[in-house]
Write a protein that binds this DNA or RNA. Sequence first.
RNA 1: GGCCCAUUCGUCUAUCGGCUAGGACGCAAGAUUUUCAUUCUUGAAAGAGGAGUUCGAUUCUCCUAUGGGCUACCA
Length: 510
Amino acid sequence: MQRKVRVRFAPSPTGPLHIGGVRTALYNYLFARQMGGDMILRIEDTDSQRFVPGAEDYINEALAWLGIGIDEGVREGGNYGPYKQSERRDIYREYVGRLLDAGKAYMAFDTPAELEAARAATPNFQYDASTRMQMRNSLSLPPEEVKRLIEAGEKYVVRFKIEPGREVKVNDMLRGTVSINSSILDDKVLYKKADDLPTYHLANIVDDHLMEVTHVIRGEEWLPSAPLHVLLYEAFGWADTMPVFVHLPLLLKPDGKGKLSKRDGDRLGFPVFPLEWHDPKSGEVSSGYRERGYLPEAVVNFLALLGWNPGDDTEIMSMQELIEKFSFEHCSRSGAKFDFEKGKWFNHKYLQEMSGERLAQLFKPVMAEHGVDPAAFDDEYIVRAVDMVKSRINFVSDLWANAAFFFVEPESYDPKAVKKRWSVDTPRIMGELIEVLEGAPDFSSAALEPVVLGWIADKGYHLGNVMNAFRLAVVGECKGPHMFDITELMGLDATVRRIHLAVERIPKAE
RNA sequence: GGCCCAUUCGUCUAUCGGCUAGGACGCAAGAUUUUCAUUCUUGAAAGAGGAGUUCGAUUCUCCUAUGGGCUACCA
């Protein structure tokens, strides 16, 4: 009698999928995969007012980029469709009818103005058992009047009739049994005749039931309405197959107040979206992890650990490992502040593990952005250059600052380094160095190093000064990989050319 | 205001009644290095407060405080 695990991620297409939503999707996915179950992507577009074009595509693209696979959905198809709520109107209409027929819901004709007036008149007005008879609805109005209003085409909403004074218990995997009194619940609007669409609550329960969802894994912001959902399952007679609830803690702002929001990204200088988003209305651009040079594996790993841990000290985990280790037992119940610095570290770690080949592919567009045609260089050259500098990057984009010198000659020389390492004698010593380089039988790193170091020792030169002047000429500043690895890759001609260039361009010291 | 959820280093977290409270990010110092990084070592850094239960509470209960969420014909 054990049902197959079926979970759903149900975003509404009102904008780009935010990083907190991504984490919810990820946990759903990890759990589904671990249990050998199904992962459903359902588009909850019941709010026609807030619909944003492009948002649905964005959701699909973001999940695909992150490697969060979907088994059933608008694109993937499945036996429980349609997977878009705006295409399920007939279904909702039928179920609203059932509730109405059973006397568990009623029609309310109050206009927005009347509702507002009622709220203004009573301090803590709530549309519920204590007030509904004073309002204009099918419970308070005579049947003939209700009939007349409907026939006159009056717009109405259907409200859930909540019986007061009941203890409603919600079973949550993370929080145990949460119980609240039904009296504090209001008669929620389930359906709007005006646009012939249900609200979230009704659509959600009907769909989860029809799609045979076994576990509802969602953000904590839904916890307060969970009792209402329990009541709805009961009203429909579906209590025995009610899904298990898991209300995940929220992702919080790094600097204190409230849950992480769209605005925080630009304010704090880090992305809150997986992919870059161009708002179709405002034209505003919000940055994304992908465009910032994050690897999807790193984002997934980092996000997985924000609110969950494997029970030991393991931090770097592949998707496969996450699937194996994931458990709600080890989910925390309190909100996690979003720590961008740690996110950078994850990316750094993943970048270190990455092959030079893959990194080079990611680097090519960055080269092009900086006006260097990747096709002008051998793949092998790019791969080796990237491999040499990768230990000092957090992002793919950092590669430019660290490896640019492999592709373009220095345009200027770090003034501080010049002051420290470039003395009156340096041009002469560099001249000697060129002779040494040109005379070397083998230009490989291992062969050249003893030759140059031997010459420095023979002449009694200061090792640090000569080597740093050498580096300054080739790189433009005193940083970078092992000097002879650089020259091996660049070759004799390019190296010598750069030394000449530096001697010409660096002003003579006093 | 009402209701609900939460509370261990600055941050993410381990601990399922025995703790010299562990790890990671970040930070500081040191080692290595011809440079910058990487790497390695070390260090500073926490149980919100108060009652109770117990031989013993970070761990269980209650109160207070604080934080968060919800309170729409949004999701």
